[in-house]
């Protein structure tokens, strides 16, 4: 659906995107991840031919986007970062306007109903909540009955429940067999939604793969926490397959190597007569992988 090969984009002296290549297959939810300023939006804009690229090639639905702008946007829906609406425009007017630009638009009334905005038709877009406005921008992106949608930072600035709603709608797009290309800097979101992700830092690809394989590739350990009366660290220090033991008021945390089974750890604890009032195991998440690979927000600045 989307092929990007060796994409380079410079702003003056600064290289915003350096030699980025990836492909997005049909029906996938593909996530472009990275800190603010990593080049996510630039890649979307170059991929759609909105911005000129300095090198590389792009194919969207088999088309060169710049040369086939009109044909392309009949089959692709786009929501850019930040809202793009005229002042004092009503929800219905925005829908009618975008519908008029397409030959066979989907009926906007049904989409408004599907997204729970049917009763907001006559409201000014400016008076919608952040979540409602983002829903509207998905609706507008869906009006052309697209084969693929590009969603740039759809959930940025939304509260957690509105964000969860958005996730449902994105999964609903996948059920409709629409390929989704999204950018986000929320790793939890990417882990929940994306089939494959591509992590960026400073305009370069750090890693790209399916979510489980990205997490695997970092070689991160599981973190086990147990509630116990044991106060003596040495009691545990000779246990096999664990490391990095930390103790704090009644709780012991340690890292468990990935090739070790939890049951073996519990058995070892039992042999040492360690009482376990509560046990928690946290598997490494995409966020852990991200922090491992890209570092915190400071690293990006």
């Amino acid at each position: 659906m989307l092929e990007v090969e060796g994409l380079v984009k410079r702003y003056g002296q600064k290289t915003a995107v350096a030699d980025v290549s990836f492909t997005v297959g049909k029906g996938e939810i593909f996530g472009l991840l990275g800190p603010n300023g990593a080049g996510k939006s630039t890649i979307i804009e170059c991929a759609l031919g909105i911005k000129k690229r300095d090198a590389g090639s792009v194919r969207v639905l088999g088309m060169e986007p710049k040369a086939n702008r009109r044909a392309l946007f009949k089959r692709v829906g786009v929501q850019f970062q930040q809202s793009a609406y005229q002042d004092r425009i009503r929800v219905r007017e925005a829908c009618v306007l975008i519908s008029s630009l397409h030959d066979r638009p989907l009926p906007y009334g049904e989409l408004l109903k599907d997204f729970g905005l049917a009763d907001k038709e006559r409201q000014m877009v400016g008076s919608l909540s952040g979540g409602e406005r983002q829903k509207l921008s998905i609706i507008l992106a869906l009006l052309p009955d697209p084969e693929m949608v590009f969603l740039d930072e759809l959930t940025t600035g939304l509260d957690p429940s509105a964000r969860r709603d958005m996730w449902q709608y994105i999964q609903y797009l996948q059920q409709r067999e629409i390929t989704v290309f999204l950018t986000t800097h929320y790793m939890e979101e990417a882990q929940h939604l994306c089939d494959r992700v591509c992590m960026l830092d400073h305009g370069r690809i750090v890693i790209q793969d399916t979510v489980p394989r990205v997490i695997d590739a970092c070689g991160l350990t599981h973190i086990v926490s147990i509630k116990t009366d044991v106060r003596d660290k040495d009691l545990l220090s000779d246990m096999k397959g664990i490391s990095d033991i930390q103790m704090e008021a009644g709780v012991v945390h340690f890292s468990m190597d990935r090739d070790v089974k939890l049951i073996d750890v519990i058995r070892q604890l039992d042999e040492r007569r360690v009482d376990i009032a509560e046990l928690n195991m946290k598997s490494p998440s995409l966020e852990d992988a991200y922090l491992h690979l890209v570092g915190g927000e400071e690293a990006a600045v």
């Binding site: 044909a71 946007f73 850019f80 809202s83 002042d87 397409h102």
Partner: peptide, 18 residues
């Protein structure tokens, strides 16, 4: 100027409209 700043112009470029 407002349409440019609010990216309305950009959003329009991402439609089949001229």
């Amino acid at each position: 100027a407002q349409y440019r700043q609010k990216k309305v112009l950009k959003q329009f470029k991402a439609t089949p409209a001229s």
